[in-house]
Design a protein around this nucleic acid. Sequence first.
DNA 1: CGAATTCA
DNA 2: TGAATTCGG
Length: 340
Amino acid sequence: MGVQIGELLPRKELELENLNGRKVAIDAFNAIYQFLSTIRQRDGTPLMDSKGRITSHLSGLFYRTINLMEAGIKPAYVFDGKPPEFKKKELEKRAEAREEAQEKWEEALARGDLEEAKKYAQRASKVNEMLIEDAKKLLELMGIPWVQAPSEGEAQAAYMASKGHVWASASQDYDSLLFGTPRLVRNLTITGKRKLPGKDIYVEVKPELIVLEEVLKELKITREKLVELAILVGTDYNPGGIKGIGPKKALEIVKYSKDPLAKYQKMSDVDLYAIKEFFLNPPTTDEYKLEWKMPDEEGILKFLCDEHDFSEERVKNGLERLKKAVKAGRQFTLDSWFKK
DNA sequence: CGAATTCA
DNA sequence: TGAATTCGG
């Protein structure tokens, strides 16, 4: 998923204080997918309510959003719209991979290999329309803004950041840099511990910041060249890229070639120039309003506890934290206003 | 993943 | 207490 240019990009660790008071546009699909794939039982089964409906994404979204708000970070979630036609191949590839993983999950389960089962269950994760609807509903009840992108969410998030309506975009993927976000935050979580799949090794995962301007300066290229580089290496729109060309070689190529795509267009069955154009000028919208409101407590209790069997005690505790955070955030905004 | 609980 | 483990839905 996403572009494979990570190793080329300079980045710096972010302390939470650096994000205090800042608005961030979060790639909703990216977040939901991660919750869905990681919040699971030992055999790989996701969390579900008594009617068998998946709730892993709601749990993750609820608690992480509260954590972010408590840290003074104002999240706005950006949802994908209609994917571009040329993403079809990648989407089909993902669907195929999921089906294969599903089979392997069942096999591992049949022979009682829980570790393998979970691994394949995670790969079989599918973010469907129902999960998206649930997520939007929860955010609305929480008073957290969400934005409907006309096309790619990463493109919309980049647009909002480049307009200065949010400070940064947030995703694990690097695509929003190609779409022109001035800042990309990765690993946007508060409790930063991740267990490596192999053994019982825990690694601290801190938020990191990638600044587009610094990327271009470091690589000595323009954004247009960065997009060409990414296309050579491979994006969601041309999976795999050009055979035999990795990030290092691609960087050299875009530097010395005036029109790097020309040579490789012949050996590619997709329109590389259309992909480039899409990254440079993606569909976006101005139809959004970023407002962080007090949560609808009654609505949340009904939705999470009554409908989806969440623990009332836990949810009420979360709500208290959220209310406090919203108030504190308003105070922060007022303080910085009077200090001007 | 993140909250709650257990462990040393 | 802080780290490790288990539970959550």
